[in-house]
Design a protein around this nucleic acid. Structure first.
Lengths: 338, 338
DNA sequence: CGGCAAATTGACAGCGCTGTCACACCAAGG
DNA sequence: CCTTGGTGTGACAGCGCTGTCAATTTGCCG
């Protein structure tokens, strides 16, 4: 096998110094156009591939970003991940993935070790890691740049989000307009900001519609399928007339659990009870009946967050917190109240 | 912020040469126990973290493995991925992920570029990439080590697999013992070895049971939920008495599609038709009724494959193709034939 | 105790690239 | 004509670690 082509070889071929090739490679200013052309031509002709480790060592950058998550929903995460990878492709970065447990004793320390070990140039944080005060503080101390997806606090943070309160309002309006009056809510994992927004939105919508709030209809979950099943069992065991005619679950996995439990209890969806979710992960279309839900452009959000991160790494402006559009997907799991 | 601790600093503190610290770091032979202790103590005391890029540059290793996939099933992949990450943790490797399209013109070239760019020490291949002759040849040419998960050809390859023919046999035996005689099969993606095994196993089981083979009951799919729906629509449209009483789908996603289509056609599962899948991905428990399926320990297989890879990278033996255990999960989607 | 092989340790030169700074060159102004 | 200041390019010294090979120490034998 041929020896690898090094920057020095390109320099020789182009008749310039290695440093000039380095300049072209890094897209630096102050290289005359003809020189740049010559170098680019030589690179192409020799099929030059820079050695990342050497670049990292010399320049103290890693061309690596790490995506941190602690999320039981593999569907959601796969989407985010795909978006981040798309963005990495554009900027010739690579990505590493890191599953974590926010509630673990050594959570911050683990991230710390990750940073020391792999020295990523930046991080992409996903909920609920976006909202861990201890971690955020540590990152600021270490001057590690990060982008957040759907964080609770937008100020001073770059990343992507959707207008959650508005989305919840739309979902509740839909259920109310179908004539539902006894609407239950399956609450998400308490560590997630999204759980708060969705619960608050649910309560506010009831209040605005002049409906009473029934504590029996607010059931705790943790975003997992199983917790949806458990919550639904409680709801469907309520005495006649006190149970819900519609269930708004804080995410799709739990909504799927609710539908599963409905089957178990001999309830037909949507004839006996309407069910809706949130996020529009693939499972929303893979269950029967297909789930009415809020479509959250997770992949796009991953892409945007990573782009913001890499642009601010490159020093191209400070980056921003970008609002992504959501949509309400009306499918077969909801129907007019009986 | 303190300057980073370098190997040289540890050497000074331990009173040995940098090279000796390097030896300890790399777990090399020929370091006396007391020396090793001293060095380890100094490392711990100073919280030393080696600089990966420097290691890579000097030793021409990257401590990186790449997992390549082209698989529509995010559940399956998430599991594999988790297993590979577990193994990476043990050996202090990192992993990168690469989605690809085997059928793309430039498939091999893309992998080639990936290798030149990131110089992973090894690859983990997942189906159907495990069986792309062009790629395998290229990898051998470039002397890139790889581990395969469920490849068609085991010879000369390291990785993990399950005894597919035996698993299919068990599944078919179960359906037959429930009294089913008209059993349909939804075939997987033609590029995947698993599709061949599962189809062959299905046919063989019918033959051994003395049942006729009905081409109308063998329907093509591609492992996706949607293809399961499409296949089932065809099956459920067969004239009375010619349709199946049980459907064996080549994976869970398609089985979920079949159940979805059953709902659409007003067929009850399992009262009117039994359905079973293969893989036991999370969706198997998240639909109603829960899916009878073959549990494939995907996570474990990912872990094993990555371990085999890293052990052979370390020169600890040649690595092996390891058989992982499967199990039949009897759930609610199957029942005796009507 | 000398002598030899094996085990252990260290000196040194890079790995392939970029930061720093010096130098060469040019246009405009005095 | 010589400055001045900006722009473009190159020389050189590392970045932090490991491979090579030589030097030293150790263990063991007669």
């Amino acid at each position: 096998m041929r020896m690898r082509v090094r920057l020095e070889d390109v320099a020789r071929a182009a008749g310039v110094s290695p440093k000039t090739v380095s300049r072209v490679l890094n897209d630096e200013a102050n290289v005359r156009a003809p020189t740049r052309e010559k170098v680019l031509a030589a690179m192409a002709a020799m099929d030059y591939r820079p050695h990342q480790s050497a670049r990292s060592l010399a320049s103290n950058r890693s061309f690596l970003i790490a995506t941190l998550y602690d999320n039981p929903s593999s569907n959601y995460l796969t989407e985010i991940q795909a978006g981040v990878l798309e963005a990495c492709d554009v900027y010739h970065y690579s990505m590493m993935l890191r599953p974590l447990h926010v509630s673990a004793e050594d959570f911050v320390e683990r991230v710390d070790r990750l940073i020391s070990h792999h020295r990523p140039d930046g991080l992409v944080l996903t909920p609920p890691i976006t909202d861990h005060p201890g971690l955020l503080q540590r990152l600021r101390e270490r001057r590690v740049l990060y982008a957040s997806i759907s964080p609770v606090e937008h100020k001073g943070t770059i990343g992507a989000f959707i207008d959650e309160p508005e989305a919840v309002r739309r979902m509740m309006a839909t259920l109310l307009s179908l004539g539902h009056r006894r609407i239950a809510h399956v609450i998400g994992h308490p560590d997630h900001g999204a759980s708060q927004w969705r619960l608050a939105g649910y309560r506010q919508a009831l209040a605005e519609a002049g409906l009473p709030r029934d504590p029996a209809l607010e059931v705790a979950g943790d975003f997992s399928f199983g917790s949806g099943v458990a919550a639904a069992r409680r709801l469907f065991s309520l005495p006649r007339g006190r149970g819900p005619t519609a269930v708004f679950a804080a995410n799709d996995d739990m909504a799927a659990g609710v539908i599963w439990a409905a089957g178990e209890h001999g309830l037909a969806v949507p004839a006996d009870v309407s069910v809706c979710g949130f996020d529009d992960t693939p499972i929303a279309r893979q269950i029967w009946p297909a789930l009415t839900t809020i479509h959250q452009p997770s992949r796009e959000m991953g892409r945007i967050a990573a782009l913001q991160l890499m642009e601010s790494l490159r020093g191209r402006g400070p980056g921003a917190m970008v609002r992504a559009p959501f949509s309400l997907e009306l499918r077969e799991s909801t129907a007019p109240a009986a």
